Amino acid sequence: MIHRETLTGLVLAGGQGRRMEGRDKGLEPFAGRPLVCHALAPLNGRVAECLISANRHPEAYAAWADRVIADLETGYMGPLMGLYSGLRAATGDWVVVVPCDSPLLPDDLVARLIAGRGDADIAVAHDGRRLHPVVALMRRSLVDDLGCAFAAGERRVEGWFGRHAWQAVDMSARAEAFANLNTLDDKRRLEACRREALRS
């Protein structure tokens, strides 16, 4: 069993936001709160510490995290580098990672990843149609291998998973919770759908 005190939560918010007009996605408002606050919601109270991986505006993110960390290598090298930096910084034996731009993740996300892991080193959310590689639970001890993979040229999170025992966790009953906001239009559409759902 994986207990709360052995868990570190990690929110990936270190991207350039190129498809969102260069905005810092995690700080973009959604339903009255920054997106990063929504990303933290399924982690709060369920992990021993929360880290935010951010390469811009660390002073703003500091209000919501136990610690804010930047990529260990500069140049916006993608989510795999954010994951590597987070695993390096984590104090727990296990790390739960979520992206900053999925504001509807279920409250029981951590429990479901733990329950669905089996004996695997990595558990990854699957919405019934596709895998969500940055919604995952993994052993922190994999960090050295991740560093080696990155040094060898690996840049895809899924590519690195393939080096280890990993398990897809069926979350198809809550597929809508994995909506990802890549653009401002995505954000507006989801906000409109949420308002409509609250009215009905």
Rank of each mutant, 00 (worst) to 15 (best):
V134I: 15
L87P: 02
A120W: 05
R112E: 04
E73A: 13
R46L: 12
A13K: 10
M81H: 14
C37Q: 15
G75W: 04
G118P: 12
E49A: 11
V36H: 13
H57V: 00
I52R: 04
A63C: 06
H57F: 11
L104E: 14
K25F: 02
D71E: 14
M81S: 12
L87E: 01
E59C: 03
H38C: 10
P34N: 10
R33P: 00
P29G: 07
L105R: 08
Y84H: 15
Y76L: 09
L105Y: 09
L72T: 03
A125F: 09
D127F: 04
L12E: 01
G14A: 12
H132C: 00
R130Y: 08
Q16I: 01
A111M: 09
Y61V: 01
R18F: 04
I122A: 05
D71L: 05
I114Q: 12
L27D: 04
V96R: 09
R129D: 13
V36L: 05
I52A: 06
R33C: 01
L51P: 08
A125K: 13
A65P: 08
L105P: 03
L104H: 15
G92F: 06
L80T: 02
L87Q: 05
V68T: 04
L10G: 11
L113Y: 14
I69A: 05
V135W: 11
D71K: 11
P106S: 11
H57P: 00
P133I: 01
L109Q: 11
G116D: 07
M81P: 00
A125V: 00
T74C: 06
L51Q: 03
L83H: 10
D101L: 03
P99Q: 05
A120T: 06
A123E: 07
R112Y: 02
L131H: 02
D66I: 01
A31D: 12
T74P: 12
L51G: 07
G26K: 08
H38L: 11
P34A: 10
C100Q: 13
G86V: 06
N44D: 13
D71A: 14
A115G: 13
R33H: 12
A54I: 08
A62H: 10
A39Q: 01
R130A: 13
V97G: 01
G75N: 11
D66A: 09
R129I: 05
L51K: 06
P133W: 00
W64D: 05
I52Y: 06
P34S: 11
D71P: 08
G116L: 07
H38Q: 08
C50E: 13
W94T: 03
L104M: 15
G86C: 04
L105K: 12
L43M: 09
R117E: 01
A54D: 03
P106M: 12
L40Q: 03
V68W: 14
L43P: 09
S53V: 01
P42W: 07
L109C: 13
A136L: 11
G15Q: 02
G86M: 04
A123G: 07
P29I: 11
P79Q: 13
L109I: 02
L104F: 15
A111G: 15
L10C: 03
G118E: 13
W94N: 05
A125R: 11
P103N: 11
R88V: 15
A63Y: 03
I69R: 05
V95M: 05
G86L: 00
C100P: 00
F30D: 02
L87T: 06
P29V: 02
V68D: 07
D71N: 15
L35K: 10
I69N: 09
G75Q: 05
R18G: 14
A115L: 04
Q16W: 01
